[in-house]
Computed example of a mutant assay.
Amino acid sequence: MMDTVIPFALLCFTSLFTITSPLSTMPVFLTMTQSLDEKERRAVAIRATLVACCALLLFVLAGQFLFKFFGISTNGFRIVGGIIIFRIGFDMLQAKYTPMNLRKEEIKEYANDVSVAPLGIPLLCGPGPYAPLWWLVVHCCCLYWQVSSYSSFLVFPPTVSALWVELLFFVSVSTCCKPSTLR
C-alpha cells in the first residue's frame, strides 16, 4: 500500500502546487499590499494561505456531496467553469480605469479584505485547483478509496506551507527592491 501512497501524494502535491501558481500571484500581491509595512504584508500572506487552504479542504470534504445534491456532472462543471473564465477574461479586456481616492484607514481596511478576496479565493484557490481535486479525490478508480483520500489530505500541509513560504518570500523581496523594480 505504501508503494501507491507516495507516488499518488507526489502527484497530488505537484498538481495542486502547479495549479495554485503562487508565482503568478506575486505581482498582484505586491501591488495590492504596496502601502503596507512588512508585518502587515506577512499577516495578509498568512490569511490568504489559510483562506485558500480552507476553501480547498471544504471542496474536498463537501464537493462530491454538493455536486451529487445539485446534479452537477464533471463535464457540466468544466463547461460552466470555462464560461465563467471566458467571461472574466472578456471583462478584463474591456477594463476601464477609475481612479480612487482613499484615506489611510480605508487602505488598511481594504488590505485586510485583500487577503480573502482576491488573493485567497480567486488567485491562490480559484477554479483551477477544483478540477484536479475533483479528479484526485473522486475519480481515482485505480487506487483504493482510502489511499486516494488519505494522500489527498496528506498533501495539503506541504502545499499550503509552500504557498505561505513563497508569499513570505515575496514580502522579503519587496522590502529589498525599489518600487519601480517590482512594477
Rank of each mutant, 00 (worst) to 15 (best):
D91R: 13
P99K: 10
F90V: 06
L93N: 09
K96Y: 10
R103I: 03
Q94R: 08
N75V: 11
T33G: 06
S24C: 00
P118N: 13
L119C: 06
K108W: 08
L61V: 10
V60S: 09
K104C: 05
V60G: 01
L133F: 08
F67H: 05
L57A: 08
A43Y: 14
I46H: 15
Q94G: 02
R47I: 07
I72L: 12
A111N: 15
I84G: 10
F59V: 01
F69A: 14
L123G: 03
I121T: 03
M32F: 10
N112T: 05
V51Y: 09
K104A: 14
Q34G: 07
F86L: 06
M92D: 00
Q34S: 05
G128N: 00
A55I: 10
L93Y: 09
P132G: 13
F67N: 09
E106L: 05
I121L: 14
P127N: 07
F59A: 02
C125S: 07
C125D: 00
G82F: 09
L136K: 04
A95D: 14
K96Q: 02
Q34V: 06
F67T: 09
L23H: 12
D91S: 11
A45W: 12
K39W: 07
C125Y: 01
F67S: 11
I107Y: 00
I79N: 08
F77R: 01
V137A: 07
L23Q: 12
C53K: 01
S21Y: 04
E105D: 01
L50W: 15
L124A: 07
R47C: 05
V116F: 15
V116Y: 12
R42N: 11
F65P: 08
V80C: 15
F69W: 15
I83V: 15
L124C: 09
D91C: 09
C140F: 07
L102N: 07
V28Y: 15
G89N: 05
S21E: 03
